[in-house]
Structure formats: C-alpha cells, structure tokens
Simulated assay, not measured.
Amino acid sequence: MAAGRVSVPSRLIVLVTVLGLYCGTFSAKDDDHHRCEPSSCGEIQNISYPFRLKHDPEKCGDKMHELSCENNITVLYLYSGKYYVQAINYNNYTIRVVDANVDEGNCSSIPRDSLTGYNYHHQDPYSFQNSDKIELSKPIIFITCKTPVNSPLYVETAPCTDAISSPSSALPHSQGHSFVMVGHVNASDLRELCRVELMVRTSWPGTKGTNLSYIDIHNELVYGFELSWLQSYDRGRKGSICYVNNDTNKVDCAYDCSYGWSQPNHCGMDIKENLSHL
C-alpha cells in the first residue's frame, strides 16, 4: 500500500454513492416544488408550499394540500365537508377554516357535518393538535332534549331555536329544546332525554367562561377552527416524529422512541434530511 493512502472497502463506496444519489434526488425534488411563485385567491394572497390551488402546475405544492378557488374564495374540501379558508399561518404551520354553511349574518346557520378527533388518523394531512400535542380548537356540541335543562353548561339556542329545529336545517329530525355545550364534557354531563346532534370545532380565542349566549357561540363558529399540517411531514417516514424546532422555527424529524426500533441507538436521533424548506 502506498504511503498516505487508505483502502476503502468497495461496499462502502457503493453505499456512499447510493446515499448521495438519494439525497440529491430528495433535494432536487423539493427545490423543484418550491420554485413556484405563490398563488392567490381572494383574501388569501400567499398560497405556497405545501399548499397549491387546483389548477396550479403539477410541480407546485403537495396534492394532499390542494385548495380550490371558487367565486374568489379559497376552499378546502375535507372529508365530506366544504370549508372556506380564513388564514394560512406559515410560522406555526396552521390553516384556519370555517364551515361553508355558516353565515355570519344568520345565527340559524350551522355546520352540516360533524367533525371531531375521531375523523382523523395519523396518515391524514391535518391534525387538531400542534407539534406540542396541544389542541388547536375546542368542541361545540349541539344537543336536543325533550325537557328543559337548567344548567350553566347548557346554552339555549334562542333566538335561533325555531330555525335550527326546522326541516331545512342541519338537524331536521330534532324535536324539543335545543342547546349547545362548549368545550370537552363528561358523559355524566349529558342529561336524560337528551341526545347529541352535531359536534364541530372552534378556535375562537376571545369569549371565556360559562356566561355565554348563543350569539357568542355562533360568532365562534364564524371564526372557524385551526388545523395543523405539520404531521404530513412525517407521513412516509415510518417510525418518525416531526416537530417545530423552537430555535429555528423549522421542522425537524427524529426517530420516534415509542416505535420500537431494532437499533436502539437510533432512538431520539435526528433524521438527516433536507428539511430546510419546511
């Protein structure tokens, strides 16, 4: 062996070459998706990665986060629901939406479909929680009871009771007294002869306490609710968890210690990928 030269196993050379090609492909693909100029629709002016509008070039954004522009309004279709986009926050990776059936000037307008944590699973593009597993919204629960209920937890839907109970509303078969409960409740809070009709969400930060009117609660529906798109980044990275680095406000991903890695030394280690665009 010549002085100063180190023999490198051929298998290692092949491995390094393959990894280099993989990383190059990963970076080039992401760069390609981020060369697109931001789109706009109505009041939402900066629609950029991971979002895209339906008719944007194929290379732009992520199909899992595709939005529509309808009558100059940005629209998100999620499960069976249609939602109007109110804001996109690229600093905390959230999007705020409101059910398309909710009208600010009509207190009898309510969402048509329930939306709860049960709708979601890990592979979905959105979540009710942020990177710290803190809920971004609280539930609003519509209830009908055959008899009156005297409880601060139960807010009467008056002056919109008749409209909400009408055949044209989202609660066509409801009879009796209509109430709304805000926030998480226990099964014991549900009175006899009462049933849950609809469960929706709100991220309204203003009104607090139990002294609410139904108009206050309808304003919360008008404000809408936030969803995080952060979890979409660990989709496809089996056994990983992605989070916002507080120092850089960028997304980092690490091997999830609860996943049960065959190599324990991987637990908690950062996954070395080009995530600078997130």
Rank of each mutant, 00 (worst) to 15 (best):
S174F: 01
S228L: 12
S40E: 09
A87M: 05
Y154C: 06
V196D: 01
V97Y: 03
K59V: 13
P152A: 06
V200H: 07
R201T: 02
G209K: 09
H218K: 10
N246Y: 03
V182K: 05
H184N: 15
V85C: 08
L198Y: 06
N106E: 05
D234P: 09
Y22F: 15
D56K: 08
M181F: 06
I141E: 00
D256M: 07
V97S: 08
T116Q: 12
M199P: 00
W261A: 13
Q175R: 14
D113E: 12
P159L: 02
P111Q: 01
L190D: 00
W204G: 09
A170T: 14
K29I: 10
C41D: 02
W204P: 08
E192F: 05
V182A: 02
G24F: 13
L193I: 04
V222S: 06
G224S: 07
G61I: 01
I143N: 05
S178R: 10
Y223E: 11
A28N: 10
R195W: 06
Y118C: 11
N246C: 08
Q231R: 14
R52V: 03
C36N: 06
S10C: 09
G209T: 12
L212G: 00
G268E: 09
G206T: 08
L15N: 03
L171C: 12
N130W: 01
P139I: 01
Y49D: 12
N150M: 10
H184V: 14
V155T: 13
P264A: 02
P125R: 02
I95K: 08
Y90R: 11
D30N: 15
T161Q: 12
R191P: 04
G239C: 09
Q86M: 10
D189R: 05
V222A: 07
T17D: 07
S258G: 14
S7L: 13
Y120C: 05
R5P: 04
M199N: 09
R191A: 15
C107V: 13
H173P: 02
D234I: 01
I73E: 14
T210D: 09
T25R: 11
Q45W: 06
S168T: 12
L227T: 00
D30I: 13
N245A: 09
R237Q: 11
T74F: 10
Y22N: 07
R96W: 02
R52G: 04
H34M: 13
P50T: 03
V75G: 10
D252I: 04
S262M: 08
K82T: 15
F225A: 01
K63G: 10
H65K: 08
S108T: 13
P111S: 04
L78Q: 06
G176M: 01
F225N: 02
S39L: 01
N219H: 11
P152K: 04
C107Y: 00
P139A: 01
P205F: 08
S174I: 00
A3N: 15
L153F: 11
E156N: 14
S48Q: 14
E220G: 15
D270V: 11
Y259S: 14
N106A: 12
Q86I: 04
R237F: 07
V102N: 00
W261I: 04
G117I: 09
S114C: 10
H122I: 02
D270Y: 06
L212A: 01
S169T: 07
I44K: 07
S232C: 08
N91L: 14
I140M: 04
